[in-house]
């Protein structure tokens, strides 16, 4: 446990430092995960590049058709943001169950994504919103869909020295709603046994599903979208029966592990129940909007 900490003033400087000290360099933002991993001797970087204070990366901005979250946006900022109280409630619901207030006041959503933990709570909601990431690196800027970004437990498609600068997702069409559910042994301070995010859009004048995006965390090596379950629902009447079937299909698609928190079998069962419930919550929310 011996490293240098660098405090670049700009993204370019940060990338330069990362290149200079590769492969023993690592970015750190809120540090809520990095410092624990260092203390547990899971990682041993020689150079930490502090990106927490980089300017302009903590803003939540709204355009006519999209939202952009700076990668350094804190959970607590998401949680308390007025724009996310309506159809984007999935963001508030997920942000508000990460650690305690103390963690949410400093931990960044970019950090959570880059960690690529299978149980990261903020990844499923962003998957359900089909979010993309803006990345800056030595070769310039690029964008990548979040679903293509996380490639395995703790692994992403970031190239060395690349840095995620923001997360973008489109606003939802009319008659859409989202929901996030999490199960753990306690009601707070939990690493998810399973978490589920759902985003449902109904057809303009029917109760059929026009678009469905589901995302499941902690039930596979990475958070994932159960495409069969999503596809099954398109054009189906939204309701108990179709949601239950979607839950069943999602449970089939996951590949959970057994660990000290829960068995694989229990996790699989939860996926079925929680997918159904998350969709039901979405439906209720759309009906509330309709009224």
């Amino acid at each position: 446990m011996s490293f240098d900490l660098h405090r670049p003033a700009t993204v370019t400087e940060a990338i330069d430092l990362a290149q200079r000290f590769a492969p023993t360099a690592r970015y750190v933002a809120g540090g809520t995960d990095t410092v624990i991993q260092i203390n547990r001797k899971k990682i041993d970087p020689a150079h930490l590049i502090d990106v927490a204070c980089l300017p302009g990366l903590s803003e939540i901005t709204e355009t006519t058709d999209a939202f952009t979250l700076g990668a350094l946006t804190k959970y607590r900022s998401v949680e308390t943001h007025p724009a996310f109280r309506g159809d984007l409630r999935v963001l508030v619901e997920a942000a508000s169950v990460v650690g305690g207030h103390q963690v949410r006041n400093i931990a960044t959503i970019g950090g959570n994504i880059v960690n690529a933990s299978p149980a990261a709570d903020f990844v499923p909601p962003l998957l359900a919103l089909d979010a993309s990431l803006d990345i800056t690196g030595p070769q310039g800027r690029r964008s990548v869909a979040l679903r293509d970004f996380i490639v395995g437990p703790g692994r992403t498609n970031l190239s060395p020295a690349e840095i995620v600068t923001s997360i973008r997702f489109a606003k939802l069409p009319a008659r859409s709603a989202t929901a996030f559910l999490k199960e753990g042994r306690r009601r707070a301070m939990e690493i998810s046994i399973v978490c589920v995010a759902a985003c449902l859009t109904l057809e303009a004048s029917t109760s059929r599903c026009a678009s469905v995006r589901l995302a499941i965390g902690a039930a596979s090596p990475t958070a994932f979208r159960p495409e069969q379950a999503e596809g099954y629902l398109i054009g189906k009447p939204a309701g108990k029966e179709s949601f239950a079937e979607a839950g069943r299909l999602a449970a089939e698609a996951c590949s959970p592990i057994s660990d000290v928190r829960a068995s694989a079998g229990y996790r699989r069962g939860l996926v079925a129940v929680m997918v159904e419930r998350a969709l039901t919550t979405c439906l209720q929310r759309i009906r509330e909007q309709d009224q």
Partner: peptide, 11 residues
């Protein structure tokens, strides 16, 4: 204390 689960104020 991540996985030794003492009740929080929510529990």
């Amino acid at each position: 204390l991540t996985d030794y689960k003492m009740p929080t104020a929510m529990d």
